Simulated assay, not measured.
Amino acid sequence: MQLSDTSLTTTHTTKDETCKASSTTANSNDHDVRLGWILVNKNLISEDQLNTALNNQPTSSQQIGELLTEQQLISEQQLQQALQEQYWRRNGYWIIE
């Protein structure tokens, strides 16, 4: 069984600027797996919640995971599990759920 490339893309406009959150599923050549995609894929947050956090991130010194835990959208444990999955995917391991 082989994973194919699929994309999760959300676009919305706020105050004349377009924000786009895009990521791709991991395969043997794709090591750029975004934390937000992992959290949405696991149904821990919605795409809208991710986009809101991404819009707030440039005005904050925090990383996306910190923003989401501060807003109590995910727990510290969920963040750690998602970061672990991100690490494994970036290092070429497949995550089978």
Rank of each mutant, 00 (worst) to 15 (best):
T6Y: 12
L50R: 01
L83K: 11
W37N: 04
W88K: 14
N55D: 09
L67W: 05
Q49A: 12
Q2F: 05
N29T: 12
V33W: 02
K15E: 12
Y93G: 00
N41P: 00
Q57H: 07
N29I: 03
I95A: 10
Q80K: 11
L73N: 09
T24A: 00
T24P: 00
L67C: 07
G36W: 09
T14E: 07
K15N: 15
C19D: 02
T9R: 13
L8I: 13
S28R: 14
C19M: 05
P58V: 08
E66M: 04
I74D: 06
T18P: 01
T52V: 12
I74C: 03
E17N: 07
E47G: 04
N27S: 12
S28G: 06
T11N: 01
Q49R: 01
Y87P: 00
E66N: 01
L8A: 07
L50H: 07
N51G: 00
Q57Y: 02
L68G: 07
D16H: 14
T14S: 13
V40Q: 01
N29G: 07
Q84Y: 15
S61A: 08
I95S: 11
S7Q: 12
L68T: 03
A53Q: 03
P58Q: 07
T9A: 10
D16M: 08
K15Q: 13
E47L: 14
L73A: 08
G36I: 02
I95Q: 11
Q62M: 15
I64R: 06
L3F: 11
G36C: 05
T6G: 00
S60P: 03
D32E: 09
Q49Y: 02
N56L: 12
Q2D: 13
I95R: 11
E85H: 06
I38H: 07
N41Y: 08
E47Q: 11
H12A: 10
E76M: 06
S60G: 00
T18V: 15
V40L: 01
N27D: 14
L35E: 02
T9L: 12
Q72E: 14
E85Q: 15
Q81M: 11
R90A: 12
N29S: 13
W37V: 03
Q49H: 10
V40H: 04
Q86C: 04
S46T: 15
N55L: 09
E47K: 09
K15A: 14
A53I: 03
N27K: 07
S7N: 09
T18Y: 08
Q78N: 10
I95N: 12
G92F: 06
T69Q: 06
W37T: 04
Q57A: 13
G92Y: 09
Q71N: 14
R89Q: 15
G65N: 01
N27F: 09
R90V: 00
L50Q: 02
E47H: 06
L35Q: 06
D5S: 10
E97C: 01
Q49F: 00
Q80V: 10
G65L: 02
E76K: 14
K15M: 05
T69P: 03
S7I: 15
D5H: 10
T59V: 03
D5I: 02
E17Y: 13
Q62H: 07
T10D: 08
D30T: 15
S46D: 04
P58K: 04
A21K: 04
T10S: 14
